[in-house]
């Protein structure tokens, strides 16, 4: 039992380890910022499953990048942008979108597994693409991740209002002169970019815990246009940074820590939301009686 515990949590030489993963923590925090913001629109546009499909193709791209020595970041960017644009172009209607996603997902996963089984390098690299890795962030990689997240955050802030308008009511937004198709494409590109970054850190299988869970949790407690993005980014950053710091001492990958924190935050928000909802309703009943 204590063996298992020390495998999961160990804080020996913590200070020295912390220095080693400084890059990861920084990358995690910035990813949390970008992921939390993107998540708000993933929820508003009802795209959680699209995120999963994009991450699977991103994984395929990263694995191909590893195999052919092109670079993991480059490969995963190509993979996720391709998937994001395909879903954006072919899946403008919800029903079509679901089937496109279902078609892309196994294809991406299969392609990725093929590339990984042909790859003869370090085994940790392979596993890391699926479940995330902690010390994988070297300086050049950190710079590329920061730049990509920066583009995503800046891009989202620019299109924030018209994108929300289109996400809520495309017909009225178009009548107002908002270019809904162009905006959807812009969003898919931003989503593809942030997914590629997430795959590097939390792994392809668990991207949803950064891009969806925090926003879903935030929406449980509020619908305010200010509070939701603030809470969503806060939750995502806490999950990312907290996950990395907990994973530091243990010998398991980073992703279980991130996903667990993310999930616990969601549970807490659900409970809080249910509590909030109950109050006014009982007040209403009392007033009616």
């Amino acid at each position: 039992m204590s063996d298992l515990w020390s495998q999961l949590f160990s804080f020996a030489n913590y200070g020295e380890l912390l220095v080693l993963v400084r890059n990861s923590i920084l990358a995690g925090a910035v990813l949390g910022l970008a992921g939390g913001l993107v998540g708000v629109f993933v929820m508003a546009r009802d795209l959680p499953f699209a995120v999963h499909a994009i991450s699977e193709l991103s994984f395929a791209g990263a694995a191909a990048g590893l195999l052919f020595g092109i670079g993991v970041v480059e490969g995963s960017l190509v993979g996720s942008l391709t998937a994001a644009l395909l879903i954006g172009i072919l899946g403008s209607r919800a029903r079509e979108r679901n089937s496109i996603i279902a078609v892309l997902m196994p294809f991406g996963l299969g392609l990725g597994i093929l590339c990984l089984s042909l790859y003869s390098g370090r085994v940790a690299n392979k596993f890391g693409l699926l479940t995330g890795q902690i010390v994988a962030v070297d300086n050049p990689k950190l710079v590329s991740l920061l730049i990509i997240c920066g583009i995503v955050i800046a891009g989202l802030l620019v299109v924030w209002r018209p994108l929300m308008f289109v996400s809520i009511d495309a017909q009225v937004a178009e009548a107002r002169g908002v270019r809904s198709v162009a905006l959807s494409m812009v969003f898919m590109i931003l989503l593809g970019l942030v997914t590629a970054v997430s795959v590097q850190i939390v792994g392809a299988l668990l991207v949803l815990s950064v891009l969806v869970t925090p926003a879903a949790a935030a929406l449980r407690v509020s619908a305010s246009p200010l509070l939701v993005p603030v809470l969503s980014t806060l939750f995502a950053v806490v999950a990312m940074v907290g996950g990395i710091m907990l994973a530091l001492g243990g010998s398991v990958p980073i992703s279980p820590y991130v996903t667990t924190i993310s999930f616990l935050i969601y549970l807490a928000c659900r409970a809080w939301g249910a509590l909030q909802n109950r109050k006014p309703r009982s007040a209403r009943v009392a007033a009616a009686a």
Binding site: W160, R161, P162, F165, V172, A173, R176
Partner: peptide, 10 residues
């Protein structure tokens, strides 16, 4: 949204 939903920027 009817007031400024079409404008760019946060």
């Amino acid at each position: 949204l009817g007031l400024d939903g079409h404008r760019f920027g946060p």
